[in-house]
Design a protein around this nucleic acid. Structure first.
Lengths: 351, 351
DNA sequence: CCAGAGCCTGGAACCCGTTCCAAGAGAGGC
DNA sequence: GCCTCTCTTGGAACGGGTTCCAGGCTCTGG
C-alpha cells in the first residue's frame, strides 16, 4: 500500500505538498497539483484514515447506541441515521444494547476513548454522572427519542400522543379503555411508554372517565407479553372495549389475544397502537404515527452540524404526531351484541 | 486526556513498561505492575484506539456491507453479526447499500483503505476484479447469503429450499403452482430468488408437472410489487391454486392481493414464503425457515477466526433449511367449490 | 537594481501507541 | 570474587498523516 511518502518521492515534491493536494488546499500551484494528482492516480494511493485521525486528533466515526435494534421502530430510525451519516465523510459504528450493563459499558467507552467523533443515543436514559463525563470528554452527543436537558435531542411529545390516541377511542364512544405498556423491567427506564400512559390518563380525566387501576397493565415490551396482559384484561369483570397499546408491536399482541378468545377486532375490541411501523398499514392497525425515519435523519443532521462546529444547532427538535385511523378501531357497537350474550355476571363466573 | 507519556512520567517508569502493563505482558515485575496500575486508575487513562491501530497497522473495526438493511431478513442477520462482533474487541461499522453505485464505492473503500480490519458482505455479488483487489488488499472477507468460490462464506441451499417449498405444495395436491420472485431490477444480481426459482422448476419437473411460463412472475422485491404480480396471475385463464413467493415479504403481498379479490387463504389460494421472518409465525405464513440470526453469528465468527490468524477456518458453512407448515397452505379443496361457481370459460370472459 | 511582499514549497515536529534493542540489576555457579 | 545468565526496564524508532515554519522564488514598485 502506497503512503504519502511514496507519492511525494515519485512526484518529486514534499509530503506537505501532497497533503495539500489531497485536502484541496488553495496554496498549491495548478501545475504541481496536476503532477501530484497523476502520481496519486497511478499508484492508487488512498490516505490512511487511521493516520489521518491520529494526526487530526479526531476520528471519522460516529457511534450510534441503540437498544434492541431489531425492533421495527429502531430499524426505521437507524435507516434515517445511516442515510445521513453514510452520505457524509463519517462512518457509522453500531452498538446494540440489550442490558443495562452493556449500556454502561458503551457510555464508558464513549466518554473515555477517542473511538468516535460523535454519538447518537437512541431512547436510552442518561445518568447525570455519565452526562457530566460526556460533557468533559467534549464528544458531541445527540439524543433521539429522549428529552435530555442541556443536550441536543430529537423527540416527539409522547404525552400528547397518548392523549390523542385515547381521545380517539373516547370519541368513538368507548369508556372502558385499557392501557397495555412497558414496565421497564429491562432496567432501561425508557420514557415513551410512561409518557404515553400519562397521556392516556390525561385524556380519561378530561373526558371525566374514572380511571380503573386494573385497566393499566404493564410488562416487558414484547408481543408475547402484551398477549398475556390482554388475557388478564379480558378476564376482568366488565372488560375493556378498547385497548391502547404503547407500541404497534404490543398492539399486535393485543389483537392476537383477542382473536385467540374468539373476539373480533374491532367489533368486540378496538385496538390502538403507537409508532406506525411499516407493517401496520398492511395489518390495518389504527395508530399514532411518528416520523421514525425522519427522526433518525434529523438526529444525524444535528450531530453533523455539531461536528462541523456549526453554532446554529437547535437545542431540540420536536417532530409531529398524527392519529391514523384504520380497521382496528370502531365504535363499541359490539356491546349491544355482547349484551345479547350471557349477562356480564354469568360471564364473570365463567372466568 | 492523559496519554501513555503522562502515565509513565507520573509512575516514574518508561512508556514501554506502561504499554506492557496495559497489554498484560509477562515481562513486568509484580510491584511495577501494581504501581503503574494505580496511576492508570488515578488518571483514568484509556489508550487511544486510533494510535494503537496506527501502531499495530490494523484497525479495530469490522465493516459490514448490507443491501437494504431495513428488510426484516437483513435485520435478523445483522443482529447475529452485531452480537458476535460487539462481544469481541472489534467495532461494527455499518454500510447500507441501496444502489449498485453505492455498492461499488463500498467495495472500493474496503479494498483500498485500512478503514476496516475485516469485511462481511451480505447477499451482494462480487465482480471478479473486485475479488482480486480484495485479495491483494489482504483484508479478510466473509460472504453471507452468497456463494463465492475461494472466499469463505455462509449460505443456504436456495435451490433445495425452493424445491422443498414447491414439493410441499405438490404434496398437498396442487398442480397449478406459480412463482413470484425478484427480477433483480436494482442491479444487485441477488442469487437467492433465482436459485429458489430453479428449485421450483426442479420440483415441477420431478413431479412431471409441465412448466407454464406465465406462472413465473418477476418484479422488484417488495410487497407492493408482489401484490401487483399476483393480480396478473389471478387474471390468467386457469389461475394458480398455489403461489410460492421468493420471500416472506413478497408472500404477504400475495396474500394481500388474494384477499383484495375476495379469495381466502388457504381455501382459494395456498401461499408459501421463504425466510421465516419474525412476523411470519404471527401471520400464520407457511414458509421455508432459514436460520437468519445464526447465519449472522456464523459469518462473524468466521471473520473473527480469520482475523485472529486462525488457520482452521472452514471454506464455507451451509446452514439447514426447514419447511414450516402454518395456516397459509392447504390442499386445493377449494377447486371443488370453485367449480360450483361459474365455469372456467365464463370466468375467463369476465376478465 | 534593490527591497519588500506574496506565493509556493520542503521538511521537521507532532499525534500516541507498540516493539525492539541495549543495558542495568540481581542471582547463581564455580 | 568474578562471570554468566535471566529478569526488568528505559527509550528510540516507527507507523502515516497534518501543520507550521522557514526559505526560495517571482513579481512589483520605487
Amino acid at each position: 500500500m502506497p503512503t504519502i511518502q511514496d507519492v511525494a518521492r515519485q512526484a518529486g515534491v514534499g509530503v506537505g505538498t501532497v497533503s495539500r493536494v489531497i485536502n484541496g488546499s488553495a496554496l498549491v500551484s495548478e501545475s504541481t497539483r496536476a503532477r501530484v494528482q497523476v502520481v496519486i492516480d497511478e499508484l492508487g494511493y488512498r490516505p490512511s484514515t487511521i493516520a489521518r485521525a491520529l494526526s487530526l486528533g479526531r476520528s471519522t466515526t460516529v457511534a450510534v447506541i441503540v437498544p434492541f435494534f431489531t425492533q421495527p421502530s429502531a430499524v426505521e430510525r437507524l435507516r434515517g441515521l445511516a442515510d445521513v451519516i453514510n452520505e457524509s465523510d463519517f462512518d457509522l459504528v453500531l452498538f446494540d444494547v440489550e442490558t443495562p450493563d452493556q449500556r454502561d459499558r458503551r457510555y464508558e467507552m464513549a466518554a473515555h476513548t477517542d473511538r468516535a467523533a460523535g454519538l447518537v443515543v437512541v431512547s436510552l436514559a442518561v445518568q447525570p454522572d455519565v452526562a457530566d463525563r460526556l460533557g468533559e470528554a467534549q464528544v458531541p452527543v445527540v439524543f433521539l427519542d429522549r428529552r435530555v436537558v442541556g443536550i441536543p435531542h430529537v423527540f416527539v411529545d409522547d404525552v400528547a400522543g397518548g392523549e390523542a390516541a385515547t381521545r380517539h377511542l373516547i370519541r368513538l364512544g368507548h369508556r372502558r379503555i385499557a392501557f397495555v405498556g412497558d414496565d421497564n423491567s429491562v432496567g432501561f427506564d425508557f420514557s415513551s411508554s410512561v409518557d404515553r400512559c400519562a397521556g392516556y390518563r390525561l385524556a380519561l380525566a378530561r373526558a371525566g372517565i374514572p380511571e380503573r387501576e386494573a385497566f393499566i397493565r404493564l410488562g416487558p415490551a414484547s408481543r408475547r407479553e402484551a398477549h398475556r396482559l390482554t388475557g388478564e384484561l379480558l378476564d376482568l369483570p366488565g372488560p375493556p372495549t378498547a385497548v391502547f397499546a404503547a407500541s404497534d408491536l404490543q398492539a399486535f399482541g393485543v389483537i392476537e389475544a383477542a382473536r385467540d378468545r374468539g373476539l373480533s377486532v374491532p367489533e368486540d375490541l378496538s385496538v390502538m397502537g403507537f409508532d406506525d411501523i411499516d407493517v401496520s398499514p398492511y395489518l390495518g392497525l389504527s395508530t399514532v404515527r411518528q416520523p421514525l425515519y425522519q427522526s433518525g435523519r434529523r438526529a444525524a443532521e444535528m450531530l453533523l452540524c455539531l461536528l462541523s462546529g456549526d453554532e446554529e444547532v437547535p437545542a431540540s427538535v420536536e417532530l409531529p404526531l398524527e392519529v391514523v385511523e384504520r380497521r382496528s378501531t370502531a365504535p363499541p357497537a359490539s356491546r349491544i351484541t355482547a349484551n345479547t350474550r350471557p349477562s356480564p355476571d354469568s360471564r364473570d363466573s365463567i372466568r
